[in-house]
């Protein structure tokens, strides 16, 4: 079976004042219909760039898709005409953003903003679209939706606004829904509600979800499969259970060690030393080598490839050589 969304060897570069940097260096991902793929990694590892590239929203210039392919239901998106991309955006592939507080236009009512998304892709009257918008607000669990539809974003709480964003994103029943850290800006209790909602929406609408997050808790709750990203590359990919229970790559292990566990006696939370290196300073070797306690000379000189080991694919010389 071919995947619904199939990203192969995607390369994205940006022109910066440090010269050209490679933000995505051969990223391959796939999502099947009805499946949830979690993409995890620290800030700056390329998660959001992958999402924006898929949406055709990379600002060009300074960005450029330097190679690879993005296929949605068999149709190639890299190099598709702007008009074709516009027709697909919001209809076949939709996105929910990290910041519900700023992602809605402050000068239009939320009902109008959802109705606009509907009218962009379906030949319906403004009246019909607004009624559909109200129904969608109801569907995403907003009380008295007919009144709320006439509210402006500033009159709603963060959780409500994220529900509005979700309603807007699913308004045209997209095949793929990309959720870029949809709960980062929200309270913990609201986070759980949003995840429940996304799960329900997926059941109802049958969309594939790409959940971008750095929250391993969200992964365990939502994801079927997980891809771990680091410095513009996928460094480990497997089912959510495999990654959570048997992380291979030292970076994935680090991420999971960072999760505080109930009942475990701990004096200080573990952390991964250092930060993601700036993209323009990446050398020839493994990007994680500087932060890795298992790194040796080979790690510093040769980029590891994503290959299958005992459990599942991971890009690590130490794992490959059985050193960890």
């Amino acid at each position: 079976m071919t995947a619904l969304l199939d990203i192969t060897d995607l390369k994205v570069t940006f022109n910066t004042r440090y010269g050209q940097v490679t933000a995505l260096d051969g990223v391959s991902l796939h999502v099947n219909a009805g499946e949830t793929l979690g993409v995890v990694g620290e800030s700056g590892c390329g998660k959001s760039i992958t999402a924006l590239a898929t949406m055709g929203l990379i600002p060009m210039p300074p960005g450029r898709i330097a190679g690879g392919s993005i296929r949605l239901a068999g149709e190639e998106l890299v190099g598709a005409s702007p008009a074709r991309m516009r027709a697909m955006r919001g209809a076949d592939i939709a996105m929910i953003f990290q910041e519900p507080m700023t992602s809605l236009n402050p000068v239009f009512t939320v009902g109008d903003q959802i109705a606009e998304a509907i009218m962009l892709h379906q030949k319906v009257s403004a009246d019909r679209a607004f009624k559909d918008a109200v129904a969608l607000l109801d569907r995403v669990g907003i009380p008295s939706p007919a009144d709320r539809a006439r509210d402006y974003p500033h009159q709603l709480s963060g959780g409500m606004r994220q529900r509005v964003m979700i309603a807007m994103a699913v308004s045209c029943r997209p095949k793929v829904l990309i959720a870029d850290e949809p709960t980062t800006a929200l309270d913990v209790t609201v986070q759980a509600q949003i995840f429940d909602l996304l799960n329900e929406i997926q059941r109802d609408f049958g969309a594939a979800i790409v959940l971008i997050t750095h929250d391993m808790g969200a992964i365990s709750e939502m994801a079927d499969r997980v891809a771990v990203m680091y410095a513009g590359r996928i460094i480990e990919e497997a089912t959510a259970d495999d990654v959570l229970d048997f992380p291979q790559h030292p970076y994935a292990r680090g991420l999971i060690d960072c999760i505080p566990a109930l009942g475990r006696e701990e004096h200080a939370l573990k952390e991964i030393p250092g930060v993601v290196p700036p993209l323009h300073l990446l050398g020839a070797g493994c990007a994680f080598a500087e932060r890795c306690e298992h790194a040796n000379d080979r790690c510093r000189q040769e980029k590891p490839l994503l290959v299958n080991h005992d459990h599942h694919p991971a890009a690590c010389h130490a794992v490959e050589e059985g050193r960890i």
Partner: peptide, 26 residues
């Protein structure tokens, strides 16, 4: 540069709609 402009583009709005409707009013 605002997030809601990205949202408008993500909906599939044409560039002139983004400019004259979503951005200009703000």
């Amino acid at each position: 540069g605002s997030d809601y402009i990205r949202t408008a583009r993500a909906k599939g709005a044409a560039e002139k709609t983004v400019l004259f409707k979503h951005a200009l009013r703000n």
